[in-house]
Each structure stands twice: as C-alpha cells, then as structure tokens.
Design a protein around this nucleic acid. Structure first.
Lengths: 153, 153
DNA sequence: GGCAATTAAGTTGTGCGCAATTTGATAGTA
DNA sequence: TACTATCAAATTGCGCACAACTTAATTGCC
C-alpha cells in the first residue's frame, strides 16, 4: 500500500522538512534577513517598518487599534513606540476625549521615511522571484489560512 | 487608466494590507498562537518543537548543523539548547573527534515528547482549513520563495 | 615544534514577543 | 457622592533572534 494512500493518513511521524511550520519558519527567516538588510540604512527594524506603515496610513490611532492591525499587544507595542518616538518617527499624545488612550501618529520625518521606502515592495517582490500571479496567490492563501486559524479561537 | 495597468507599476505608496510582509507577519502571528496553545501542555515553545524534531530526526548533530537546518546561529541556539538540556529533552556532549564541536541528541524523554506530538501536523492542517492540494501548493511556494531570497545573497 | 589563521560554541547587548500584573482613567450603580 | 467594575496603556519577567565579541580547539605553514 502506498504511503500516500487515503487510508493511511498518518504514515509514521512526519519528517521535519515536510511540516508546514518548518517551511513557514524557514521562509520567515529568509524574509527577515532581506528586510533587515534593506531597512538597515533607514534605521528601521522589520516590525518598526510595519508599524510605521500602519500609523502613516491609518492616521492617528490608538495603541490598541494598532495592536489589532499588527496582532501585537501593548507589552510589545509600548516599548516599540517609545523607541520610534525617541527616533523622531512618531508622536504619542493622550487622547483628550479619554485620557486612557494614547494616540499615535507619524511625524513629518516618519512620513518622509515611508516615502523613501516607496520602492521596497517591488524590491522584495523582485527578490522573491514570484510572478505577479504567484504573489497574489500566495497573498490570498495567507489570508485564507489566517482567517481559518483565527476562526477556531 | 486603471491602477493595475502594466504601464503603472507603482501607483502611489502601497497600502500596508497589500504588502506581502504584512500578510506574512499576520499569518505567522496566527500560526504562533495556535502552536503556542497546542504545545503549552507539552512544555515546549515553537522553536523548541522545531529544534527537537530536527534533533530527533537527524540524529546526533552539531550546533552549527542544527543552525543550518533552522537558520539560526549559536547566539540563539546555545541558550535554547541549554534550556532544553535542563528540561531533560536533549543531551549535549563535546565531540571527541573535535573538541570544538558539541553533539546534540534527543534523550529518551525527548523522543517520547516528539512521539506524543505525532498528531500535531494533522491538527494544524485541520485548523488551517487548507486542502491537501492547497497545503502542498503553499509548501512549494514557500520553498521557492526561500530559495530565491537566498540566491540573492 | 611553534605560531598565526581559522573554526565552533558561548557570551553580551539590544530589540521583538507574550503572559501576568500594575497604574490610571472611565463607566456604572447603589 | 462613593464604590466597584471595566478598560487602556505601561511594566515586569522570560524566551527568541541577531550582531559583535570572546574563548577554546584545530589546521596550516614555517
């Protein structure tokens, strides 16, 4: 009987290389390295780049709203935003409407930094070697997976 | 002119949600949460699970070999392996052939832990909601992307 | 043999990430 | 009004990750 037969769903312990978590882990490491390289000269880390993009695009927003966007909590965002504030990229002010909230917005320096990175997505796309169709397919698959994983919890 | 016309490759700064790095970041966060939940009762973190799989499968191997497999350096692996040794999951011994090297191997407890996690890949696959074909396609795409990203450096 | 160059792990410092807790502000209710 | 509950952000503690450096062992070359 073939090991891929439908009647043998678990043909022994799955090898590491066959597991999706391993593939994801490996790909993320590779992406990380490339972003690190391309962002270094702009003084941004990969999470900072995503945060700055989100802040610049979605206007002044609260820490928890940014947290929903990035799937990160205040334990991660608070120190990250303080570092970005110290770097002059974002401003943080208490919301006068509700002093519990902190509104984060991009400074002009922050906007300039994002503008200077206008070409980054294309650079990454080029390095990834995926066609536009493959890129869209991957994007769609990632969105589907994320939604499904979320649905369970 | 349509914004997706071939003659307009960069129709203004790309929105965060359209960027592949954002999709990857989001998906990884979602996967992380699920692995964290399923591995908690086994006393393993996600990186420890991958490391233990690799060690159990690829026999006694050096720290640097494991580093190639996981794309991590000694700065990450040394403390991680020490924690796993303290937990009784792996053994570390200097290679008598070359005292610079440290050979890492899974203890019987480590093998048992992996055996107890035999069903994890299926559980993850089920939660991800991808068909076998979609899973294989995603896997293939990830491998391709990783290879291409590596090729550039 | 002696000695510089290389190699393998480990250490230090900084940043990202989460769980659990704390601080401070708002909302609700007696 | 006062008291409790809830909510937002920050803090603490621990683990993962990399860059840069250190330590110790091996190799290569004289």
């Amino acid at each position: 009987m073939s090991p891929s037969s439908p009647s043998t769903p678990s043909p022994g312990p799955l090898s590491l290389e066959q597991q999706i978590c391993y593939a994801m882990h490996t790909t993320v490491r590779a992406f990380d390295a490339v972003y690190r390289e391309l962002l270094a000269e702009h003084g941004l880390s990969y999470p900072q780049y995503i945060a700055l993009m989100g802040i610049a695009e979605h206007g002044p927003l609260t820490v928890s709203r940014l947290g929903e966007l990035m799937r990160l909590d205040s334990g991660t965002l608070s120190p990250l935003l303080k570092r970005m504030e110290a770097a002059g990229l974002v401003g943080r002010t208490r919301d006068p409407e509700d002093e519990r909230r902190v509104l984060v917005s991009a400074t002009s320096t922050g906007h300039e930094r994002i503008a200077a990175l206008r070409e980054l997505p294309q650079q990454i796309a080029a390095r990834s070697g995926l066609s536009r169709e493959q890129m869209l397919a991957l994007h769609e698959t990632l969105r589907t997976v994320t939604d499904r994983l979320d649905a369970h919890s």
